[in-house]
């Protein structure tokens, strides 16, 4: 019986997402049952206060689905310095291990999450062509030196080791985790996705926005030695 209601909710969720209702009401059910909503916002209209985890109401624009399915079963640490709104963030809050769910739940949740998208989000700006070797070397210098992104974000260095600051999310697996178009938009509008962002605003050339995005996308944990 319990399982049936769960399935029914899932069906409703998938069926209605694109139609009559906004995702929030129905889709929250499985997330609600598993306790996800106690920490995350699945809808932009949820209470702003007491946010203890990253917002997920744009998860469908932000994440790659396969990563979500993997992460929810076998969580990896993304923010080594903790969540930026944690009251102990500046004094060295350590991130707690994320709760894990079964394969079936992970798939259901990933379906739900991939439906959470923002109106008017532009897709197709970042193509799938990776940076050429030369451009990659140039972008690495921009990432590490010109704009100092490494001071707050971990990335993989020449010796193939994770290196860099911990106040921002780690990029060592960003290529598997994030969608290019979202990285690009976040870089252009850091406050759109986190009104209380601690990241500086960068006014870059279009070329630099794209090449930094592709540099972030080139980071995959398989490349760590």
């Amino acid at each position: 019986m319990k399982k049936n209601t769960k399935l029914l909710f899932l069906f409703l969720c998938v069926a209605f997402t694109n139609h009559l209702f906004n995702t929030a009401a129905y889709c929250q059910t499985i997330a609600e049952k598993l306790g996800c909503l106690e920490c995350h916002r699945f809808s932009s209209s949820s209470d702003e206060k007491n946010r203890t985890a990253p917002d997920l109401f744009f998860a469908g624009d932000k994440f790659k689905k396969k990563w979500l399915v993997d992460f929810l079963q076998q969580p990896e640490i993304v923010r080594p310095g903790g969540f930026t709104l944690d009251p102990n963030f500046l004094t060295g809050a350590k991130i707690k291990g994320h709760q894990s769910v079964t394969e079936e739940e992970a798939n259901q949740l990933a379906d739900v999450l991939m439906k959470l998208t923002l109106k008017g989000f532009s897709k197709g700006i970042i193509d799938n062509i990776p940076l050429s070797k030369g451009k990659r070397a140039k972008s690495k210098i921009k990432f590490e030196r010109t704009y100092g992104c490494t001071a707050c974000h971990q990335a993989i260095n020449l010796a193939r080791k994770p290196r860099g600051g911990i106040s921002g999310p780690s990029f060592i697996n960003a290529g598997n985790r994030l969608q290019g178009d979202w990285i690009y938009d976040k870089l252009k509008n850091p406050r759109k996705y986190e009104p209380l962002s601690r990241m500086p605003i960068f006014k870059l050339s279009e070329e630099d926005f794209v090449s930094l995005t592709k540099y972030v996308l080139s980071q995959k944990k398989e490349n760590i030695r």
Binding site: G164, G165, I166
Partner: peptide, 22 residues
Amino acid sequence: QWYCTQCHGVKGKGDGINSPHV
């Protein structure tokens, strides 16, 4: 407190959470 402390530390002593990593 919101921005600079990430690196310069809550009392400005240069000991923020990023400091061991730069």
